[in-house]
Design a protein around this nucleic acid. Structure first.
Lengths: 223, 223
DNA sequence: CCTACCGATCGGTAGG
DNA sequence: CCTACCGATCGGTAGG
């Protein structure tokens, strides 16, 4: 690639990054092209050379985030072979995506609020493949009796998405609601642990709770 | 109250209602005073007579919503004496608040995203009293062995708030993600049921499963 | 990548 | 409650 082309791509990348942050923080209408350009260190018309309109920039930001998600999915699914331990692995992996940058959750939530008709199918398309896999595992787990019979797989996945998305997007605010005791240092740790616990215990037949030692002979479980 | 005063209040009320809807749909910056005034059927300067600035209008909208919430709380807490059946009652009651008008969830979520520092303490103040009560019931339930020992009461309440708030705010979008089978009529029913199930089964020691009848003598509990 | 400029729309005011 | 008007800022263009 010629150095000029490379340079152009770098600038576009920096624009996308700063736009992501400002859209997430102030919303699409709340973040002006001037502000974004200033954050990048260029003038507004220069920004409009890379992205012909504000809406083009918005789509670019959304696409980049979904592309990042696509990149994280294989790593997530590699850990998905069901069972309580694997659940922790897949969950931790999925949480990492938003933990890396909470602006992702905020941006996605804003887009879902601002343009449901446009964004929902876009998200659905990206979610469907791994949602399908997770649902299949849930159903298999139900047949084996590991997973609660009353779980509605698709609806369960939707709830977990809600939990994670909203949890990260508002975790600052919700932390404060929680932090009535000001001596607490990082309430988000507590919130994250409980988020995981809720998702997990509502899925599996029996939680990891210390079973009341009913003196049951150990069973050599099949794979 | 003189008829002129009464008329003024009615107009202010209609302004608040339309502002709530438009703020919820397009966000605070995305909804202009002109649009709101037009929806009410008056001109912009007339609107500014009732609410001196756009920010005054925003605070008015937020206050009205929190006031509505305060009005609903006693009804909710009346159903709160813990136990699996009461859980359904209190949950249904709480859901009614957002079901009456999903714009409430959208508005609150937007405010939490736009102005976390300002809104979080405001919400915390309104949530604290009943959150405290619910947490006490959870702890009592834990002592009695009805509620899972590994539940973190405050964090659990935060997760349920997330679940409900985000669930209603984005239920249109999330429904579409779910509705891969187009023959489904109302996916929101499925989502709501699963939302309730997740909240419930992650709280109680054993789900609504037939308890193994341990023939425990009834205890006349003191206050 | 810039300066200079465009019409449109924003929240808000004057004055009645 | 209105008409008329304000400066500021918006997204976007011309032209280099």
């Amino acid at each position: 690639m010629p150095p000029l082309e490379r340079n152009k791509r770098d600038v576009a990348q920096r624009i996308l990054d700063h736009a992501t942050k400002l859209f997430a923080r102030h919303g699409f209408v709340g973040a002006s092209l001037r502000d974004i350009a200033k954050a990048v260190g260029i003038r507004k018309p220069s920004l409009l050379y890379h992205f012909p309109s504000k809406d083009d920039l918005r789509r670019g930001v959304l696409e980049q985030m979904l592309a990042h998600w696509n990149h994280a999915v294989p790593r997530i699914l590699r850990a998905a072979t069901a069972g309580p331990e694997q659940f922790d692995a897949i969950a931790t992996e999925a949480l990492t995506f938003f933990r890396e940058d909470p602006d992702r959750a905020r941006l996605l939530l804003r887009e879902l609020l601002d343009r449901p008709e446009e964004v929902a199918p876009l998200v659905a398309m990206r979610v469907q493949p791994w949602s399908k896999i997770v649902c299949d595992y849930i159903r298999k787990g139900q047949e084996q009796g590991r997973v609660r019979a009353d779980v509605d797989p698709e609806a369960y996945v939707a709830q977990v998405i809600n939990l994670v998305l909203c949890g990260f997007a508002t975790h600052i605010s919700i932390s404060r609601v929680l932090a009535q005791a000001p001596e607490e240092h990082d309430p988000s740790e507590r919130l994250l642990r409980e988020m995981l616990r809720v998702a997990k215990s509502s899925l599996f037949e029996t939680g990891p709770a210390p079973a009341p030692a009913r003196a049951r002979p150990a069973i050599a479980g099949g794979a």
